[in-house]
Amino acid sequence: MANATLQSAAAPRLRPLGRDLIGLALIALAGLSGYWLFPDNLAFLTRVISVALLVLSLDLVVGYCGIASLGQAALYGAGAYAAGIACINGITDPILLILIGAVAGAVTGLFTGAVMLRAHGLPQLVLSIALVQLLHEAANKASWLTGGSDGLSGMAPAPLFGVFEFDLWGRSAYLFGLCLLLVVFAVLSLIVRSPFGMVCRGLKEDPLRISALGIYAFPVLLKMFVISGAVAGTGGALAAIATQVVGLDSVSFELSANALVMLVLGGIGHLYGALIGTVIFMALEHTVAAINPFHWMTLVGAVLIAIVLFAPRGLSGTLDQIAALLTRRGGRAGR
């Protein structure tokens, strides 16, 4: 009898893999149609991809571990600055620069995670903000290294594989970014379904149950912060290579808050939600903010209010579940 159930089990288990492939194909298709439809906006589209990586990385922490963060841009900015500084200092291979960005993001993630995991609930949120602000001030102060408020410029990344130059039209940069996104998305799809990913989901729901299984929460969550940092750092490095400028805004509270808004818009706890949210938000921002930045703020505000009031589970999926656990956790810590 046990055998029979195992057999019938084999079929549904194949499904997620197939779904992943279809998902990847859809992303590739959407990305390529963007390439054909908006050939004049490729720089903007590349920025969308790099921010999408940031939002994906935030989803790992918020959506899969239930840790609210308003400081995710710290990891993104670390990757951007690391790649930018390396590029100015003679390391120009784009793949290598991406790796440098990912490592810088991962190291920052390790540090950020170690600090943030000391607290729960609101103080944890405040720590995330304080960390990104601290890095912002540090980047501003260390202008000899980062260019300070003028930003870091003068990068000249070498052609990709020695063939595809990062030209004015940004075709190489965009296609490079799209490939990166596909690779990262595929890897993350596997990670969230690994044993580790399941334990993270468990920790989000009920940390006590996980510890009753004999699993320590801290190293698991810290690992997720490192992975999240690597993804965010990749996004930052991509932005640095594509725009060849790194500004202070890449490590800012505003970018962190926007990333959270995009994630909530698309749906917390689903990788594709992060992508959808980023695309919708940035497309709207691109059009509305160009007309009047204050109308844009009003619109974003109204959308946020509407999501909380009318679609806490619909559009944003598991918004309240996450945070129910945040409050539960905060309450438990205080008990």
Binding site: L213, V220, I227
Partner: peptide, 11 residues
Amino acid sequence: GKATRILARFH
């Protein structure tokens, strides 16, 4: 001792 492996499929 495999509950937190990253490079493995849960199922």
